[in-house]
Design a protein around this nucleic acid. Structure first.
Ligand SMILES: [Mn+2]
Ligand SMILES: [Mn+2]
Ligand SMILES: [Mn+2]
Ligand SMILES: [Mn+2]
Lengths: 235, 235
DNA sequence: TTTATTTGTTAGGCAAGCCTAACTTGTATA
DNA sequence: TATACAAGTTAGGCTTGCCTAACAAATAAA
């Protein structure tokens, strides 16, 4: 049985590996994610290693064992199912769900999660567009391309957000954006990459920082990088 | 903001005062309820007193302040709403709900509880027949009479259980009993107070211990003690 | 390749909650 | 009233999860 804190460490490691596109993480990286000091992380790593949830040698990189990973995925699964529940059934807005799901994800009851999933009719994505792992621990897609990668004159479809903070999510809504919206990039400033986009016939200006936090899938024409299969599967 | 543990201490105090019919509790009593040692309780009492959640002097009795009491009632409210949710919406049996509700009762989100209550259409009783406090902290009834108080030849209606342990609840089901069932007492053994009862035309023998854990309301004819108003209101 | 900077580690400490063992106070019983 | 027992308290210790300050290793820059 894992503690609340241990679960959060594993979940944070999983998150980092998703973001890095590798399966390695560092002490400071983990400390930043958990808003905790590196020394604290170091203590915990020894315990997690002892429990065979991570692999890790002094001054080396941290990786999840398959045991650790499956625990982390289970927590992520619960988190996203609860977010979906709050959003779908209890009229929470997409910027409100995360905070409560951070608590609910630690409730221990397999039956509860099974019933929850069934009640929601086996959803595939949470309110932020993130994929919900299934009971076997399989996750469908990891989005990589963002609005910042879309070429001028081209269109894309928003599928998820990268930043889940409520301030960002509220901003997204204010700009008139939401999951599944078609976005056309009308122009990009040379100097600061400021974009002018069109959504539902409405024009908005968004910063590069903003654009980098909106995951999109191609409808051909994505700038530079080729269209990876994993992304286009759902486009 | 109260910790998980502090909430459990306050809830336990409330429970004890309900059971005692007074508003006082002792250190050992509290320790037993929480399955913790008296020394531990003593430490915590100092903190709770400091936070003005309990009134308490060395070697004296413990009472909840109105602040402490309202916190305790809020936890109890959440507990019973969650039990009702699990029972009504997720097909949990009445002996399964308590364990999970013990976790869910600590989730901090006023909005969540308001939505939960609305979703359940403002229930008044939980699956065990216990009253659910409303948002103002008001509780409707406290049952006092049990099946053990019913005279031979008389009938009553089961409204709640006193013991919430899953072993007892499963036993109750096995005997063919449930909330709102009519129970007729056919005989009572002189020696050990063993009862023969009739429920839905079916006869069963139940021990005194068993009978003392089934709350009932009168339909006149309750042995000895007069019919207190608070009980009969809902009968 | 030496130096500076980032990254990671160790030692020592603290608060929350729990424990045991020894003690004190209050109450019931003789 | 004296004494025994129950109830409550204190002292000291443990684990978990966090911290700061000082240090060591690895890596990037000069
Ligand atoms: Mn989230
Ligand atoms: Mn999400
Ligand atoms: Mn319960
Ligand atoms: Mn109940």
């Amino acid at each position: 049985m894992l503690s609340y804190t241990e679960e959060n460490y594993l979940k944070a490691l999983l998150k980092i590996t998703f973001e890095n596109g590798s399966n390695e993480a560092g002490t400071n990286e983990l400390a930043n994610t958990l808003v905790v000091k590196p020394a604290t992380v170091n203590d915990m790593l020894k315990k997690l290693k002892e429990k065979e949830l991570v692999e890790y040698e002094k001054y080396g990189k941290i990786t999840l064992t398959s045991e650790g990973r499956s625990n982390a995925i289970e927590v992520l699964r619960k988190h996203r199912l609860w977010e979906t529940f709050l959003y779908e059934k209890f009229d929470f807005s997409w910027d409100e769900v995360h905070e409560v799901a951070e608590q609910l994800e630690h409730i221990q009851s397999t039956k509860l999660i099974d019933k929850l999933e069934k009640f929601l009719d086996y959803p595939e994505f949470d309110p932020h567009g993130d994929p919900i792992p299934n009971k076997k621990g399989e996750i469908k897609v990891h989005f990589k391309k963002t609005l910042a990668d879309v070429g001028v004159g081209n269109s894309c479809r928003m599928v998820a957000v990268k930043d889940n903070s409520s301030s960002f999510l509220q901003y997204v809504v204010k700009v008139g954006l939401g999951i599944n919206n078609e976005i056309k990039v009308l122009s990009r400033q040379e100097y600061d990459a400021l974009l002018v986009i069109e959504v539902n016939g409405q024009l908005s200006s968004v910063s590069q920082k903003f654009a980098e936090n909106i995951f999109v899938v191609c409808q051909n024409c994505i700038i530079g990088k080729p269209c990876s299969k994993i992304k286009c599967e759902i486009s």
